[in-house]
Amino acid sequence: MSADAGEASADAEDLYVRLKVYEGRAAATSGVGKDLVNEPMIRHWCEAMGDTNAAYAGPDAIAPPTMLQAWTMGGLSGHSDRSGAHDELFALLDGAGYTSVVATDCEQEYLRPLRPGNRITFDAVIESVSPRKTTRLGTGHFVTTRMDVRADGELAGTHRFRILKYTPAATYARTVAHPPADTHPRADTHPPAVAAKQKPRRPRPVINRDNAGFWDGVARHQLLIQRCGACGTLRFPWLPGCGGCGSAEWDTVEAGGEGTVHSYVVMHHPPFPAFDPPYAVGLIELAEGVRMVSNVVGVPYDKVRIGMPVRLEFQRVDEDLELPVFRSLEESTG
Protein backbone atom coordinates (compact mmCIF):
# COMPACT_ATOMS: atom_id res chain seq x y z
CA MET A 1 0.00 0.00 0.00
CA SER A 2 1.36 3.43 -0.94
CA ALA A 3 1.74 6.21 1.61
CA ASP A 4 -1.07 8.16 -0.06
CA ALA A 5 -3.42 5.18 0.02
CA GLY A 6 -2.59 4.52 3.65
CA GLU A 7 -3.25 8.15 4.55
CA ALA A 8 -6.56 8.12 2.66
CA SER A 9 -7.65 4.92 4.39
CA ALA A 10 -6.81 6.42 7.78
CA ASP A 11 -8.80 9.56 6.93
CA ALA A 12 -11.80 7.45 5.94
CA GLU A 13 -11.61 5.45 9.17
CA ASP A 14 -11.29 8.63 11.21
CA LEU A 15 -14.38 10.10 9.52
CA TYR A 16 -16.41 6.96 10.23
CA VAL A 17 -15.42 7.08 13.91
CA ARG A 18 -16.68 10.66 14.08
CA LEU A 19 -19.91 9.72 12.28
CA LYS A 20 -20.61 6.82 14.65
CA VAL A 21 -20.66 9.24 17.58
CA TYR A 22 -24.03 10.48 16.33
CA GLU A 23 -25.72 7.08 16.62
CA GLY A 24 -28.28 7.24 19.40
CA ARG A 25 -28.41 11.03 19.49
CA ALA A 26 -31.79 12.74 19.36
CA ALA A 27 -32.92 14.29 16.09
CA ALA A 28 -36.18 15.58 17.64
CA THR A 29 -37.35 15.56 21.25
CA SER A 30 -40.95 15.87 22.45
CA GLY A 31 -42.12 17.08 19.04
CA VAL A 32 -45.77 18.02 18.73
CA GLY A 33 -47.80 17.69 15.55
CA LYS A 34 -49.05 21.06 14.27
CA ASP A 35 -52.59 19.75 13.83
CA LEU A 36 -54.75 17.19 15.52
CA VAL A 37 -55.59 14.17 13.39
CA ASN A 38 -58.50 15.55 11.37
CA GLU A 39 -61.02 14.58 8.72
CA PRO A 40 -60.08 17.20 6.06
CA MET A 41 -56.45 16.01 5.92
CA ILE A 42 -57.62 12.39 5.77
CA ARG A 43 -59.99 13.25 2.91
CA HIS A 44 -57.29 15.13 0.97
CA TRP A 45 -54.87 12.23 1.39
CA CYS A 46 -57.42 9.66 0.23
CA GLU A 47 -58.39 11.76 -2.79
CA ALA A 48 -54.74 12.18 -3.80
CA MET A 49 -54.10 8.44 -3.40
CA GLY A 50 -57.39 7.34 -4.96
CA ASP A 51 -58.14 5.35 -1.80
CA THR A 52 -61.88 4.85 -1.31
CA ASN A 53 -61.71 2.48 1.66
CA ALA A 54 -64.83 3.03 3.80
CA ALA A 55 -62.75 2.85 6.98
CA TYR A 56 -61.40 6.35 6.26
CA ALA A 57 -64.76 8.15 6.17
CA GLY A 58 -67.77 8.58 8.41
CA PRO A 59 -68.24 9.02 12.16
CA ASP A 60 -65.92 6.12 13.05
CA ALA A 61 -63.20 7.05 10.56
CA ILE A 62 -59.56 6.22 11.13
CA ALA A 63 -56.61 7.75 9.32
CA PRO A 64 -54.87 5.65 6.66
CA PRO A 65 -51.90 4.01 8.43
CA THR A 66 -49.50 5.31 5.78
CA MET A 67 -50.29 8.87 6.98
CA LEU A 68 -48.24 8.12 10.11
CA GLN A 69 -45.44 10.53 9.20
CA ALA A 70 -47.75 13.18 7.72
CA TRP A 71 -48.98 14.23 11.20
CA THR A 72 -45.41 14.93 12.33
CA MET A 73 -44.34 17.18 9.44
CA GLY A 74 -43.45 20.77 10.24
CA GLY A 75 -44.35 22.33 6.91
CA LEU A 76 -42.49 25.36 5.57
CA SER A 77 -41.96 26.83 9.05
CA GLY A 78 -40.52 23.62 10.48
CA HIS A 79 -40.44 22.54 14.12
CA SER A 80 -38.82 24.64 16.85
CA ASP A 81 -38.08 21.55 18.95
CA ARG A 82 -35.80 19.91 16.39
CA SER A 83 -32.39 18.85 17.69
CA GLY A 84 -29.20 20.13 16.06
CA ALA A 85 -27.60 16.66 15.94
CA HIS A 86 -29.01 15.89 12.50
CA ASP A 87 -27.72 19.18 11.05
CA GLU A 88 -24.31 18.59 12.62
CA LEU A 89 -24.10 15.11 11.12
CA PHE A 90 -25.03 16.40 7.66
CA ALA A 91 -22.50 19.23 7.94
CA LEU A 92 -19.80 16.68 8.76
CA LEU A 93 -20.73 14.61 5.71
CA ASP A 94 -20.91 17.71 3.49
CA GLY A 95 -17.44 18.74 4.64
CA ALA A 96 -16.09 15.32 3.66
CA GLY A 97 -17.43 15.70 0.11
CA TYR A 98 -20.73 13.81 0.47
CA THR A 99 -22.90 16.74 -0.58
CA SER A 100 -25.65 14.91 -2.51
CA VAL A 101 -28.56 13.17 -0.84
CA VAL A 102 -31.17 10.66 -1.97
CA ALA A 103 -33.91 8.93 0.00
CA THR A 104 -33.47 5.16 -0.29
CA ASP A 105 -36.30 3.58 1.68
CA CYS A 106 -38.60 3.84 4.68
CA GLU A 107 -40.14 1.30 7.03
CA GLN A 108 -43.27 1.84 9.08
CA GLU A 109 -44.76 -0.23 11.89
CA TYR A 110 -48.36 0.44 12.92
CA LEU A 111 -49.40 -0.33 16.49
CA ARG A 112 -52.81 1.37 16.82
CA PRO A 113 -55.16 3.33 14.54
CA LEU A 114 -55.12 7.12 14.50
CA ARG A 115 -58.50 8.82 14.84
CA PRO A 116 -59.71 12.40 14.36
CA GLY A 117 -58.98 14.39 17.50
CA ASN A 118 -55.79 12.52 18.46
CA ARG A 119 -52.89 14.76 19.48
CA ILE A 120 -49.67 13.55 17.85
CA THR A 121 -46.30 13.74 19.62
CA PHE A 122 -43.03 12.21 18.52
CA ASP A 123 -39.36 11.65 19.26
CA ALA A 124 -36.68 10.93 16.66
CA VAL A 125 -33.22 9.45 16.99
CA ILE A 126 -30.31 8.91 14.60
CA GLU A 127 -30.41 5.13 14.70
CA SER A 128 -27.42 4.20 12.54
CA VAL A 129 -24.72 5.47 10.20
CA SER A 130 -23.30 2.86 7.80
CA PRO A 131 -19.67 2.34 6.84
CA ARG A 132 -18.72 3.94 3.52
CA LYS A 133 -20.58 2.22 0.65
CA THR A 134 -20.22 2.44 -3.12
CA THR A 135 -23.49 2.36 -5.10
CA ARG A 136 -24.43 3.03 -8.71
CA LEU A 137 -25.14 6.65 -7.78
CA GLY A 138 -21.84 7.17 -6.01
CA THR A 139 -20.03 6.54 -2.74
CA GLY A 140 -21.20 7.68 0.68
CA HIS A 141 -22.85 6.74 3.97
CA PHE A 142 -26.40 5.55 4.70
CA VAL A 143 -28.07 7.37 7.61
CA THR A 144 -31.15 5.85 9.28
CA THR A 145 -33.44 7.93 11.50
CA ARG A 146 -36.13 6.32 13.66
CA MET A 147 -39.20 8.25 14.75
CA ASP A 148 -41.59 6.99 17.44
CA VAL A 149 -45.06 8.47 16.95
CA ARG A 150 -47.57 8.70 19.81
CA ALA A 151 -51.29 9.44 19.80
CA ASP A 152 -52.52 11.05 23.02
CA GLY A 153 -49.39 9.70 24.71
CA GLU A 154 -49.74 6.09 23.49
CA LEU A 155 -47.21 4.66 21.02
CA ALA A 156 -49.01 4.45 17.68
CA GLY A 157 -46.23 3.54 15.28
CA THR A 158 -42.59 3.74 14.29
CA HIS A 159 -41.18 5.32 11.14
CA ARG A 160 -37.66 4.55 9.94
CA PHE A 161 -36.29 6.73 7.14
CA ARG A 162 -33.01 5.98 5.38
CA ILE A 163 -31.03 8.32 3.15
CA LEU A 164 -27.71 8.12 1.34
CA LYS A 165 -25.35 11.08 1.64
CA TYR A 166 -22.94 10.62 -1.25
CA THR A 167 -20.67 12.08 -3.90
CA PRO A 168 -22.09 11.31 -7.38
CA ALA A 169 -20.13 8.90 -9.54
CA ALA A 170 -19.77 11.52 -12.29
CA THR A 171 -18.06 13.85 -9.82
CA TYR A 172 -15.67 11.04 -9.00
CA ALA A 173 -14.86 10.57 -12.66
CA ARG A 174 -14.08 14.26 -13.15
CA THR A 175 -11.96 14.36 -9.99
CA VAL A 176 -9.97 11.26 -10.94
CA ALA A 177 -9.32 12.61 -14.43
CA HIS A 178 -8.42 16.14 -13.24
CA PRO A 179 -7.18 16.05 -9.62
CA PRO A 180 -6.43 19.38 -7.93
CA ALA A 181 -2.81 20.37 -8.53
CA ASP A 182 -1.68 20.36 -4.92
CA THR A 183 -3.80 17.65 -3.30
CA HIS A 184 -3.67 13.88 -3.07
CA PRO A 185 -6.62 11.62 -4.06
CA ARG A 186 -8.68 10.64 -1.02
CA ALA A 187 -10.35 7.26 -0.56
CA ASP A 188 -13.43 8.89 0.98
CA THR A 189 -14.11 11.03 -2.13
CA HIS A 190 -12.91 8.75 -4.99
CA PRO A 191 -14.35 5.42 -6.12
CA PRO A 192 -12.32 2.70 -7.82
CA ALA A 193 -10.69 3.94 -11.03
CA VAL A 194 -12.91 1.65 -13.11
CA ALA A 195 -15.89 3.86 -12.25
CA ALA A 196 -14.46 6.63 -14.41
CA LYS A 197 -14.57 4.33 -17.45
CA GLN A 198 -18.13 3.08 -17.08
CA LYS A 199 -21.03 4.75 -18.83
CA PRO A 200 -23.58 5.83 -16.22
CA ARG A 201 -26.69 3.64 -16.16
CA ARG A 202 -30.21 4.25 -14.93
CA PRO A 203 -30.90 3.06 -11.38
CA ARG A 204 -32.40 -0.43 -11.44
CA PRO A 205 -36.05 -0.82 -10.42
CA VAL A 206 -36.68 -2.50 -7.08
CA ILE A 207 -38.33 -5.82 -7.91
CA ASN A 208 -39.99 -7.84 -5.15
CA ARG A 209 -42.67 -10.49 -4.76
CA ASP A 210 -45.43 -7.87 -4.96
CA ASN A 211 -44.42 -6.34 -8.31
CA ALA A 212 -42.36 -9.03 -10.08
CA GLY A 213 -45.29 -9.83 -12.38
CA PHE A 214 -45.42 -6.24 -13.58
CA TRP A 215 -41.75 -6.30 -14.60
CA ASP A 216 -42.19 -9.71 -16.24
CA GLY A 217 -44.89 -8.07 -18.34
CA VAL A 218 -42.63 -5.16 -19.26
CA ALA A 219 -40.03 -7.66 -20.50
CA ARG A 220 -42.74 -9.00 -22.85
CA HIS A 221 -43.77 -5.45 -23.89
CA GLN A 222 -47.01 -5.70 -21.92
CA LEU A 223 -48.27 -3.12 -19.42
CA LEU A 224 -50.19 -5.20 -16.88
CA ILE A 225 -52.74 -3.79 -14.45
CA GLN A 226 -53.87 -5.71 -11.39
CA ARG A 227 -57.56 -6.63 -11.12
CA CYS A 228 -59.11 -7.66 -7.81
CA GLY A 229 -60.35 -11.25 -7.92
CA ALA A 230 -63.29 -10.43 -5.62
CA CYS A 231 -64.70 -7.04 -6.66
CA GLY A 232 -62.99 -6.56 -10.04
CA THR A 233 -61.44 -3.19 -9.15
CA LEU A 234 -58.40 -2.29 -11.24
CA ARG A 235 -55.37 -0.98 -9.36
CA PHE A 236 -52.00 0.52 -10.14
CA PRO A 237 -49.29 0.51 -8.89
CA TRP A 238 -49.31 -3.14 -7.93
CA LEU A 239 -50.27 -3.92 -4.33
CA PRO A 240 -50.61 -7.16 -2.33
CA GLY A 241 -54.30 -6.52 -1.60
CA CYS A 242 -57.34 -4.61 -2.84
CA GLY A 243 -57.89 -1.16 -1.37
CA GLY A 244 -61.62 -1.45 -2.02
CA CYS A 245 -62.60 -4.78 -0.48
CA GLY A 246 -59.33 -6.02 1.06
CA SER A 247 -59.16 -9.22 -0.98
CA ALA A 248 -55.71 -10.69 -1.59
CA GLU A 249 -56.91 -12.48 -4.76
CA TRP A 250 -56.09 -10.89 -8.11
CA ASP A 251 -55.31 -11.40 -11.77
CA THR A 252 -54.17 -8.98 -14.47
CA VAL A 253 -55.46 -7.20 -17.54
CA GLU A 254 -53.24 -5.75 -20.25
CA ALA A 255 -53.50 -2.00 -20.78
CA GLY A 256 -54.40 -0.95 -24.30
CA GLY A 257 -51.75 1.76 -24.19
CA GLU A 258 -53.90 4.87 -24.70
CA GLY A 259 -53.80 7.62 -22.08
CA THR A 260 -53.69 11.32 -21.30
CA VAL A 261 -51.39 13.49 -19.21
CA HIS A 262 -53.27 14.04 -15.93
CA SER A 263 -50.44 16.08 -14.39
CA TYR A 264 -46.70 16.51 -14.87
CA VAL A 265 -43.49 18.05 -13.58
CA VAL A 266 -40.35 19.12 -15.43
CA MET A 267 -37.18 17.86 -13.76
CA HIS A 268 -34.28 20.31 -13.75
CA HIS A 269 -32.45 19.33 -10.54
CA PRO A 270 -30.71 17.39 -9.16
CA PRO A 271 -28.74 16.27 -12.22
CA PHE A 272 -27.79 12.58 -12.24
CA PRO A 273 -25.25 11.08 -14.64
CA ALA A 274 -27.76 8.71 -16.27
CA PHE A 275 -30.32 11.46 -16.96
CA ASP A 276 -30.29 14.52 -19.21
CA PRO A 277 -32.41 17.29 -17.67
CA PRO A 278 -34.67 19.04 -18.24
CA TYR A 279 -37.23 16.33 -18.98
CA ALA A 280 -40.93 15.80 -18.32
CA VAL A 281 -42.31 13.25 -15.89
CA GLY A 282 -46.04 12.74 -16.24
CA LEU A 283 -48.84 11.25 -14.20
CA ILE A 284 -50.57 9.36 -17.00
CA GLU A 285 -54.24 8.47 -16.78
CA LEU A 286 -54.72 5.28 -18.76
CA ALA A 287 -57.90 4.58 -20.71
CA GLU A 288 -58.62 1.81 -18.17
CA GLY A 289 -58.98 4.46 -15.42
CA VAL A 290 -55.79 3.92 -13.41
CA ARG A 291 -52.80 6.27 -13.32
CA MET A 292 -49.07 5.69 -13.49
CA VAL A 293 -45.93 7.82 -13.43
CA SER A 294 -43.60 7.73 -16.43
CA ASN A 295 -41.64 9.90 -18.83
CA VAL A 296 -43.42 11.83 -21.59
CA VAL A 297 -41.39 11.61 -24.83
CA GLY A 298 -41.70 12.72 -28.43
CA VAL A 299 -42.33 16.37 -27.60
CA PRO A 300 -40.14 19.09 -26.03
CA TYR A 301 -40.47 19.19 -22.25
CA ASP A 302 -41.93 22.73 -22.39
CA LYS A 303 -44.70 21.58 -24.76
CA VAL A 304 -46.15 18.95 -22.42
CA ARG A 305 -49.60 19.93 -21.17
CA ILE A 306 -52.39 18.53 -19.05
CA GLY A 307 -54.86 16.61 -21.21
CA MET A 308 -52.28 15.79 -23.89
CA PRO A 309 -53.04 12.41 -25.53
CA VAL A 310 -50.22 9.89 -25.29
CA ARG A 311 -49.57 6.29 -26.21
CA LEU A 312 -47.49 3.64 -24.52
CA GLU A 313 -44.19 2.47 -25.94
CA PHE A 314 -41.21 0.64 -24.48
CA GLN A 315 -37.89 2.44 -24.47
CA ARG A 316 -34.56 0.67 -24.10
CA VAL A 317 -32.35 2.77 -21.83
CA ASP A 318 -29.36 0.42 -21.74
CA GLU A 319 -28.35 -3.11 -22.68
CA ASP A 320 -30.56 -4.86 -20.12
CA LEU A 321 -33.28 -2.39 -19.13
CA GLU A 322 -36.45 -1.36 -20.95
CA LEU A 323 -39.02 0.98 -19.41
CA PRO A 324 -42.61 1.88 -20.30
CA VAL A 325 -42.83 5.51 -21.44
CA PHE A 326 -45.58 7.54 -23.13
CA ARG A 327 -45.17 9.27 -26.47
CA SER A 328 -47.17 12.38 -27.27
CA LEU A 329 -49.69 11.90 -30.06
CA GLU A 330 -49.57 15.59 -30.87
CA GLU A 331 -47.16 16.80 -33.54
CA SER A 332 -44.05 18.37 -32.02
CA THR A 333 -43.56 22.05 -32.77
CA GLY A 334 -40.15 22.23 -31.06
Rank of each mutant, 00 (worst) to 15 (best):
A3S: 08
G6K: 09
A8N: 04
A10K: 10
D11Q: 13
A12C: 14
A12W: 03
A12F: 00
L15A: 08
V21D: 09
G24V: 01
R25G: 08
R25E: 13
A28T: 15
T29Y: 07
T29V: 15
S30A: 11
G33H: 02
L36E: 07
E39K: 15
W45A: 11
W45I: 15
G50M: 07
Y56H: 08
D60Y: 04
P64G: 08
P64M: 06
M67W: 03
L68Q: 05
Q69V: 09
Q69M: 11
A70M: 14
M73A: 14
G74L: 08
G75V: 05
H79E: 12
R82E: 07
S83V: 05
G84I: 12
A85Q: 09
L89R: 04
A96K: 02
G97E: 03
V101Y: 01
V101P: 04
E107A: 15
Q108E: 13
E109R: 15
L111C: 09
R112Y: 02
P113Q: 11
L114E: 04
R115I: 13
N118I: 00
D123T: 12
S128A: 13
V129F: 04
S130D: 06
G138Q: 02
G138E: 00
G140F: 07
F142K: 05
F142L: 11
V143P: 03
V143D: 04
R146E: 12
R146L: 12
M147Q: 14
M147S: 14
V149W: 01
R150K: 02
A156M: 03
F161I: 10
I163K: 13
T167E: 00
A169K: 00
A177D: 12
A177R: 14
P179R: 07
A181H: 08
T183G: 01
H184I: 15
R186I: 05
A187V: 09
T189G: 02
T189R: 05
P191C: 11
Q198K: 15
P200M: 11
R201G: 04
P203E: 07
P203V: 09
V206E: 00
I207R: 10
D210A: 11
G213M: 13
F214W: 01
G217S: 10
V218N: 08
H221V: 04
L223A: 05
I225K: 03
Q226R: 02
Q226H: 04
R227V: 13
G232P: 15
P237Q: 06
P237C: 04
L239Q: 12
P240C: 03
G241Q: 10
G246W: 10
G246V: 06
A248D: 15
E249Q: 12
V261P: 01
V261C: 04
S263R: 09
V266L: 08
D276I: 09
D276T: 15
A280P: 08
G282F: 01
L283G: 07
L283M: 11
E285S: 00
A287P: 12
V290S: 11
V290W: 08
R291S: 07
M292V: 13
M292I: 15
M292Q: 12
S294C: 12
S294F: 05
V296P: 02
G298I: 08
V299S: 06
P300N: 12
P300R: 13
K303T: 11
R305C: 00
R305E: 06
R305F: 06
V310E: 06
R311V: 14
L312G: 03
E313P: 14
E313K: 09
F314R: 11
R316Y: 07
V317K: 01
V317Q: 01
P324M: 03
S328Y: 02
T333R: 13
T333A: 08
G334D: 01
